[in-house]
Amino acid sequence: MKARCAALALLLAAAATASPGLRLEGGPFRPYRINRAAVVDDEGLLGRLELWGLRWDGARVLLFRAPVAARTRSLDADFYLDEDIRNLEVVVDEPGAGRSATFEAAAPGTPDPAEAALRLRMRGLEAPLLIVQHGDGPAAFDFRGSDVVTAAFQASSALFTLPVDRAPLLLLGAFALVALAASASRRREARALVILAALGTTAAVFSLAAPRAVLFSLVFPDGKVPGTVRRTVREAPGCTRIAYVDAEGSGGLELVALRAPAGTGIPVDDVVPPGGQVRFSSPPTITGERLMTSEAFTTGWVLHAGR
């Protein structure tokens, strides 16, 4: 009851600041996909643009955000949608002229049989909870004898382990050695060296210690549990991709887990190939540059197109 009241209050508040000119075009939007909408405002969009999903329980989740530096009439917004999201709220945070508008998330009416069957399948794919552990995961893992649910749980608890980057610790250790050596000396140059080393290390920490986005994946070829999977690690700019694939290769169904803190991001197409369906444990945010971000770990099932 409380949740319903909160949702109602939210909708009423949204209606109070609603802008008649603000529109969301490109629908109908479909759940379990990366949708694209055009946010249109005849008065022009400027400032920070956000697209929020309003869930049935009244919670709000940020689906899309983009800064709009120069006034424009419309802007394309990519966003993930699932059946937990009831309404979409567009918020334009323009200095002195903030406005918002709320829209129905999914098209009304009964979906066609194919779409209904797909939604039923996606509803059955519960994304496992990720137990975050550190260290290098095993180079190979044998899933024989497991079913899909067990394999997904095994992957999330044993394979999807966060790699530990030792470079920043080595840098701090080197600085500590320099400071230690300098403290043994009474010369004035030693102090100057510590000052320079401290400032230099501080600057270097920003590039070495900044967290990277990480994307894990485990491929279920043709939706079946793989046999022995092998780990491949690929470093892309700002992102580490760790995939577990068996000899049959990619395709079919894929379990993914991602974390992309502020300042990083993973290209949307790298997570969900065009035409694919996806169900995330919690909706990630997509930026104007089509990068997927998520402060906390998000797991999800990706169903590749044509499978």
Binding site: L172, I195, A198, F206, A210, P211, P261, A262, E295
Partner: peptide
């Protein structure tokens, strides 16, 4: 003051490493 300066790289690490802020905000 030098003792405090020696702590600065560790403070920067504690700010940057957990993430959650854009690089400019961390600076």
């Amino acid at each position: 003051a030098l003792c405090f300066l020696e702590i600065l790289p560790f403070f920067a690490f504690a700010v940057v490493q957990p993430g959650g802020s854009e690089p400019s905000a961390a600076w």
